[in-house]
């Protein structure tokens, strides 16, 4: 089994897979012919998967988006691009390890790829600050975007953050200003900007690299103004209402597309990218190249006007 971390709501699938494993063992030992049994079990597993993954709640999708084996930004870069040249630093304070970026080719097409990076073990998580950027991370991202604009290279951002870092130093160095500046500057970048939420899209920390001509969400990700846990703690004064908060926030890719707050969904292998990372890489690469195809022929000024018009149309007001 490739993946050792299962969620509670996947237990039906896990039980059937254990049974299949045992059946295989018995079969291989040559004691009994289990071919029929194995086929039945495989069918059952497929059915169980359809049932479980076809009816995921908002909170369950949030859990999948945080699965420890889910591909992160550098995994995607390594597997969808070639010739990645990572560039470091904001030229002012330091190099923020929670945001990575650099030039690369995707199927021979040049890109500037920028994304939040999480860590896989304790040491890496600390290094990457759990994917929570500081102001210098947003300023590095902006520097790289301006660099891409200068050399007429399209931009791809990969969003995966539990939020911008809420620390003492972040405030001292102007976390709010850094994010605000990116929102303003990204809205008038002359090159195509494609943004994809690949994991968690938490609030301003996500939007800080998320203003693009195409904003896509991978199937099992979330994007909202606040995490379900924090929403629960503010509205109900407890973290225990997170499931309800996740429903109320309508934060899943399908909800976000329905509300016209994102432009499309990138499909993932059933149950999440970690079940078959290669399929997720292929899917993301195809979506990015398709978006680029739609955007690259446009006049830069038209593209900017369309980008601003799209965000300007977001919101529901009543004039009465």
């Amino acid at each position: 089994m490739a993946n050792q971390n299962w969620f509670d709501f996947e237990k039906d699938i896990v039980e059937l897979m254990d049974q299949l494993e045992k059946a295989k063992e018995t079969h291989e030992m040559g004691k009994l012919d289990m071919t029929d049994m194995m086929a039945t079990l495989e069918n059952k597993i497929e059915e169980a998967k359809q049932t479980v993954y076809g009816n995921l709640s908002g909170w369950q999708k949030v859990q999948i988006s945080r699965h420890p084996e889910r591909p992160y930004t550098l995994d995607y870069i390594e597997n969808i691009a070639t010739d990645f040249i990572e560039l470091h630093g904001d030229r002012q304070v330091k190099d923020d390890k929670a945001i990575v970026g650099g030039f690369a080719n995707i199927e021979g097409k040049p890109f500037m790829i920028i994304g939040q990076q999480k860590g896989r073990n304790t040491k890496q998580r600390q290094l990457r600050n759990f994917g929570m950027p500081n102001p210098e991370g947003y300023r590095k991202a902006l520097r790289l975007m301006k660099l891409a604009e200068k050399f007429n290279v399209p931009i791809l951002t990969l969003i995966d953050t539990p939020g911008a870092s809420p620390g003492l130093e972040a405030e001292e160095r102007g976390q709010g200003e850094a994010i605000a500046r990116n929102l303003l500057e990204m809205s008038v970048l002359k090159v195509p900007v494609i943004c994809v939420v690949i994991g968690e899209g938490a609030s301003g920390g996500a939007l800080g690299i998320g203003v693009g001509d195409r904003v896509l969400m991978m199937e099992y990700t979330w994007y909202s103004v606040i995490s379900p846990e924090s929403c629960s703690s503010i509205l109900w004064r407890t973290w225990e209402m997170k499931e309800r908060a996740a429903e109320a926030l309508k934060l899943s890719a399908t909800d976000m597309l329905q509300n016209k707050l994102v432009d499309g969904i990138v499909s993932e292998p059933l149950g999440g990218a970690h079940h078959d990372p290669q399929a997720a890489y292929d899917s993301l690469k195809a979506a990015v190249l398709q978006s680029l195809g739609e955007l690259e022929g446009m006049d830069p000024e038209d593209r900017i006007q369309e980008r601003i018009a799209k965000f300007s149309a977001m919101g529901v007001v009543v004039d009465a």
Partner: peptide
């Protein structure tokens, strides 16, 4: 800050207002 009860709609007001300010700046 943002109004939680409008969730991502609130979030996108940040992008909307900043984009308009970019035009004012230009």
């Amino acid at each position: 800050g943002a109004r939680m009860m409008e969730a991502a709609f609130s979030l996108m007001q940040m992008a909307k207002t900043s984009a308009k300010l970019a035009l004012l700046d230009r």
